[in-house]
Design a protein around this nucleic acid. Structure first.
Lengths: 235, 235
DNA sequence: GTGTTGACCAGATTTCATAATTGGTCACGA
DNA sequence: TCGTGACCAATTATGAAATCTGGTCAACAC
């Protein structure tokens, strides 16, 4: 077994690097495992020493990107807890995703084929757990209004159109990423935040909790990325 | 020429009825002009006495539906000017569209293939003109906040995700039309309307203006539906 | 004449059999 | 022990032939 080969010499990461580069250049469908192996300077069989299938490889890539994205966000949060205000938080997220080609390519692909190709049962449950805790925490600290109907649905439906690149075309205007982020920010500020934002110390406390929640989430995810053994797909 | 055949005997409407029924059953691609003619009980050539192309036929259908939809909205507005409050107006629109299978099928098709297949230059310019006047009028009467960035983009991007049927799937919840309308309504109320809604007489005045704008719009559109002669596609 | 039609045509779409590619395995070699 | 690429089944690309469909118009009915 080569279970810790990746951890030991970083080969897994080099493979993921290659996968990411090719993904951005060609899109999921056109990337072959052989391409990836070649670009990573290894044999094709070696890829399968790290992940059972091509799909799991890309799940790992998605996860690695997501972790790095969350870490970037948490960094910001540590520097300035006021970033936790949803209108800032979401705009910042939007811009971070926009600035990461691999994440963009992955989430675009994800939106295109809705069957949740990249999220198997484990990831999904974890994610739901996290977002539930996150929303609860935010609401409890007065960062979200407590009277938004179906908060998680409403928020994601509201944001959907901003993520789709061609919404602007429909109304015949040109909107760059920054302008779109500003629009989102405005809507969030007025529709999802209470009129009175929480004070600095409440904010700091909430930020600490959020940081704790997400930091706790990262290690199991990281393990998942590099561990060869996986739960099997649910029937 | 058979320019007024439709007006005289209602044949154009029967063709559009047939087109609508087939559209809902089969979708745009699978509907053939021959099917339409057969269901309308006429020969295929006759369809082309009314419209130059299949696409124009469906543009006419879209327009007829849109007019009927606007009339339904204006009726409501006449009964209760407070329906002009955006959070009510938009929720009402959303439910009206949801309750009209033909309109749903058309707008779904429209969203799917973004090239604006159903809106040629004339329709588009008219529509832009209308919505520009509409937004201006609404803002002037204090129905929209005057500080929303890129109002028309922000509004339509915000609503996009609610129209897409499968947004709910992404967060794993079930939302019926009424619940979705409630979500939209909430967001609009808080993000797009000023804190203080206009008084009843301001509302009545604004409603009258809106009614006038849209009523003026309808006749040329109706003419467009039934008149054989069309502007040619722009080069 | 006037209004309607369906056979007809070119171009688009579908079909279907064949060829090429690719995810995944594993016997072999370093 | 770890890594590899030839190998295989299965999916996917290809392309030529067959079918379908939007649009026209000569012929027909009234």
């Amino acid at each position: 077994m080569a279970e810790r080969a990746g951890q030991a010499d970083g080969r897994a990461d080099r493979i993921l690097d290659a996968a990411g580069e090719l993904l951005v250049r060609l899109g999921y469908r056109k990337v072959t495992v052989e391409d990836i192996a070649q670009l990573a300077g290894i044999g094709k069989g070696t890829v399968y020493l790290h992940w059972r299938t091509k799909q799991q490889l890309f799940e790992a890539l998605l996860l690695r990107e997501a972790i790095s994205y969350v870490e970037q966000l948490l960094d910001g949060l540590r520097r300035d807890p006021a970033l936790l205000l949803p209108h800032r938080f979401v705009a910042e997220s939007f811009l971070i995703v926009g600035g990461r080609p691999v994440l963009r390519a992955l989430s675009e692909g994800y939106l295109r084929q809705r069957q949740g190709r990249f999220t198997d049962a484990f990831l999904h449950s974890q994610e739901l757990l996290a977002s539930e805790r996150f929303y609860g925490l935010m609401t409890r600290h007065g960062l979200f209004r407590d009277d938004v109907p179906s908060l998680s649905y409403t928020l994601s439906a509201m944001m959907m159109g901003f993520h789709l690149d061609d919404t602007a075309h429909l109304v015949g205007v040109e909107m760059d990423m920054r302008a779109r982020a500003e629009s989102i920010s405005f809507v969030i500020r007025h529709a999802f935040e209470p009129p009175e934002p929480p004070g600095p110390e409440e904010l700091a406390e909430a930020a600490a909790e959020v940081i704790a929640v997400f930091e706790a989430l990262i290690p199991p995810y990281r393990t998942w990325i590099y561990a060869y053994e996986r739960k099997h797909e649910p029937g």
